[in-house]
Amino acid sequence: MNLTLHVWRQAGPELSGKMVVYKANDISPDMSFLEMLDVVNERLTDNGEVPIAFDHDCREGICGMCGLMINGVAHGPMNGTATCQLHMRSFKDGDTIYIEPWRARAFPVIKDLTVDRSALDRIIQAGGFISAPTGGAQDANAILVPKESVDNAMDAAACIGCGACVAACPNASASLFTAAKVSHLGLLPQGQPERYRRALAMVEQMDLEKFGSCTLHGECQEACPKEISIDTITRMNHDYIRARLIGTRP
C-alpha cells in the first residue's frame, strides 16, 4: 500500500505546531498502525530527520498509553479498538490519513503526537480507590458478591485510561473516564462506605483540571476502545447529586 500522511509536528510544549506531509510507501496491510509509523520513523531517521514522537507501550490494547486522532476519530475507524490494535487493512491503497494528538485543554501537547494526561491520575487520587491498607483484609469469600454486580463492575473496570473519551468529546469532558471508576467501585459491596464521597471528590477534581462538562453527546462511548457505556455517567450523576443532597464532604 502507498499512503499519504498528514502528521501533527510540534517540537515542544510551548511551541507552535503544524501538519507535515509524509509519503508512506510499501506498507503491508498486516502491519498495525503503529508499526506503519515505526517504518516511517526508520525512514526519517535514515534521512537524518527527527522521528515522530508518539506514546505507546504494550501494543496489545491494554496499557492505554497509545492514542491518536486518525482522520478526526479517536483511535481511528475500528470500533472497540485502541490505536495499537488497529491494522492497516482498515485502510485502502492511495488513502490520505490525518494523524493528530488528543486535543483537550487538560491534555497539553508535550511533543508531536504525545500529550500529558496526568490530569486523569489526579482524578483517581481524589477518590478513585477503596481505602483498604495492606494487611487487614478478611477472607475473600466472606462477602458474597452477586455475579451480575461483579460483571457490571468489570465492564466499567475495563477502562484503560487512554483519554479517547476526552479527545472525542466536543466539550473535552472526562466524564466517561470518571464515571467508569465511580461505577466499578460503586457497584461492589466493598466500595459502599466511600461511594458518595468518591463521586463528589472525583467530579470536583475533574472540574479543577479544566475538563468540560458532559452534555450527553455520546461521542465518548463511540470512541472508547473498551466500549464502556455512557450508562455509567448516569450512575455517576446519581451518586454525585445524592452526595450533594446529603451534604457529603469531599
Binding site: 483498604a132 487487614g136 483484609a137 478478611q138 475473600a140 455475579k147
Partner: peptide, 19 residues
C-alpha cells in the same frame, strides 16, 4: 486474594456470589 478483593478487584464469581 483477600487483599485484592478488599480493594475491589472484580474477580469472576459464581452465581451464588462465591469466587
Amino acid at each position: 486474594i483477600d487483599q485484592c478483593v478488599a480493594q475491589g478487584v472484580p474477580f469472576a464469581r459464581e452465581y451464588g456470589g462465591l469466587l
